[in-house]
Amino acid sequence: MDDLVQVTDRGLFVPAANVYIDPWQPVERAVITHAHSDHARAGHRLYLAHPVTGALLQTRLGSSISLQTLPYGKKLRLGSVQVSFHPAGHVPGSAQVRLEFRGRVCVVSGDYKRHSDGLSAPFEPVRCHMFLTESTFGLPVFRWEPAETLGQRLCLWVTEQLAQGRHVCLTGYSLGKAQRLIRILNEAWIVPFVHPAIEIINQTLKRCGIRPGNYSALSEYKKSLGPAVILLPPAAVDRLPAGISGPFVRAACSGWMAVRGMKRRQNLDKGFALSDHADWPGLLKTMEESEAERVWVTHGFAEPLARYMQERGRQAEALRTAWTETPEEAA
């Protein structure tokens, strides 16, 4: 595709710096955009990441990994390439990777969103010659409702369910989505109980100075507390956690919930399209602001988004990578 970045079967490779970005096979040196599992895999010899992502990597992959961290905006020379991280707004610690080589700039977006979530450093547009963008929600049917009204709707629904004596199970990724949900619920004076997987992430974030909001551990739940709001990772939503019983409702919080079929398939009571990715207008705006001459589109709806850009006179190309977030996996 280009001499600066190439797709190989191990991942996106930057030859001049001899590093891979979010590789899917074990490599010598890996630059990690954020700590979600499809981007941050185990088995690399050396990891380079933003300090918050670094702390999360140690939590998830073990403290024994070899890690070098780089704050947003600071430049690091790798081989003949200047590498720097810029906020992607996706989850705490998430970064776009800017690569500068012989006067040309390429930006690899990682996953990103354009609206602020109050937790992650807000997205910063970076001008570049070449831009590699994600396209998880790259169809025009994805247009997010403003976060405030969605938050209000969610709290209203949760309150109604509690009032009718039902537990409420909300699912969302342990990193990012869970903390957003805690904060949204706190706005309505609701303190949720969180699954241990979320608790671990919360502890790590606290160590990095990021406050996840008020919550309780699931183990603290007592029957006398009545109906509870329980935050769970996307897996394991079929029944209530051990120690809790009674009628309950289930809702997923994910951009996929914008489509009714997705919700119905999982037999959920409710879905909230609360996303940590850019929606269609967000993707278009970002490509525009990058001022890039060439755009590569990867994981998600790469083909349609690339074709749409081509028709608007842009040099755009779909790129096949192994980063995936499918509706089934994201729930």
Binding site: V141, R143, A258, V259, P304, Y308
Partner: peptide, 21 residues
Amino acid sequence: PLWLVEESYHFVGDLGETLAL
């Protein structure tokens, strides 16, 4: 563009819903 409306429809799986979105 029409092709993108179609592409969206194939994903959403319901024409009424696609148009509403």
